[in-house]
Simulated assay, not measured.
Amino acid sequence: MAFSLATWNINSVRLRLPLVTRFLREQAPDVLCLQEIKCQSDQFPAAELRQLGYVHQAVYGFKGYHGVAIVSRHPFAGEERHVFCGKEDGRSLTVRFDEGPLAGIDIANFYVPAGGDIPDPDLNERFAHKLAFLDEFARWSQARARRGVSSILVGDLNVAPLEQDVWSHKQLLDVVSHTPIEVEKFNAILEAGGWQDVMRAIIPPPEKLYTWWSYRAQDWRASNRGRRLDHVWTSRDLKDSWTGMSIETDTRDWERPSDHVPVITRFAR
């Protein structure tokens, strides 16, 4: 059985609901994971997405700039919210499927803290929080791997780990999202959980891959100063199930776009 999964930091689901509905009509993934929904759970546009066939919804909203959601054409068997660093701030949510094409699979949706602008935990509390979050993320991944759960993990992880995941490795070494300490902790998470980096398995270096372009660029395509901040991972047992992956860059040209673009991954079991 085949299925497709999309992940997208939408940067306000209510503001960009027309983009979400257009994307779902055009691409029709089985599951869509959203990050930075920027609304509390009862403000999520549930009815509008149900009308498009996404009747199964798990939402972990938050009043600030966080919040994650998973909407699906297939029913969930259960959902779990995760609290990292003692902060219940809508950054991670997992759902489990017991029937249909995703039977026996957990999908985890993450929005890792951005970390502010100063890459020094002594001077920047937001960066210190990000590093602590990544450490706890590694422990969570290790515990999950020990349970042997078939899993797909997606989301805005706010780290561009490889030199080819940023427009300039040298210029961004001191910029939050590509600093050596963030990359070290990111790789520790991959190793602890036995995660497989789907995007880089399908399109390995030296090819550049980006999923985010700053709003500051007048012409984002011309400057192409991107970063790969959005990721798709699977547990080892799902390694042979990947059939394709696409980064939907055209959405960056839509009206009032997010600075992130969706990533679609296709699977067959």
Rank of each mutant, 00 (worst) to 15 (best):
N109K: 06
R146E: 15
L52S: 08
E163R: 10
A47P: 06
S241V: 09
L190N: 07
Y65H: 13
P262T: 06
Y65S: 06
K63M: 09
F97D: 02
V68H: 00
A108P: 04
F3S: 06
A145F: 08
L172W: 12
V166D: 00
Q40P: 05
E191W: 05
D253T: 11
I37W: 01
G53I: 07
K170L: 14
D219V: 08
D253Y: 10
D197P: 05
I10C: 05
Q27R: 15
H178P: 01
R256G: 09
E48A: 14
A58Y: 03
R22G: 08
A143D: 13
S177Q: 12
A160F: 00
Q142R: 15
G90E: 01
N224A: 15
L162S: 07
F44W: 05
I202A: 13
R252P: 02
N187M: 13
D89W: 04
V112M: 03
G193V: 03
L162N: 07
P18W: 09
I107S: 01
D230I: 02
S241D: 13
D135A: 07
P257D: 12
I202W: 12
L173N: 05
A46W: 03
G194H: 06
M245C: 15
R25C: 14
L5T: 03
E184W: 08
Q43K: 11
E88N: 13
A6V: 04
A143T: 11
V198H: 01
I10V: 15
Q35E: 08
Q164K: 11
R14N: 14
S214F: 05
F84A: 01
D117A: 15
L19D: 09
Q196P: 05
S246D: 14
G61D: 04
G61L: 01
I264V: 14
V261C: 14
E26Y: 10
W140F: 15
F84Y: 07
H66G: 09
R22W: 08
K170V: 14
S151K: 10
N9G: 03
A77M: 10
R25H: 12
S4G: 09
D30R: 00
E48Q: 12
A128E: 04
A6M: 06
T211Y: 02
A222I: 10
R221W: 08
E191D: 12
V198M: 06
K130L: 04
L153N: 04
N124M: 07
V176Y: 00
R96K: 13
W242P: 05
A46M: 10
E125I: 12
F127I: 06
G155L: 02
L19V: 13
R146T: 12
F110I: 06
S12P: 03
G116V: 02
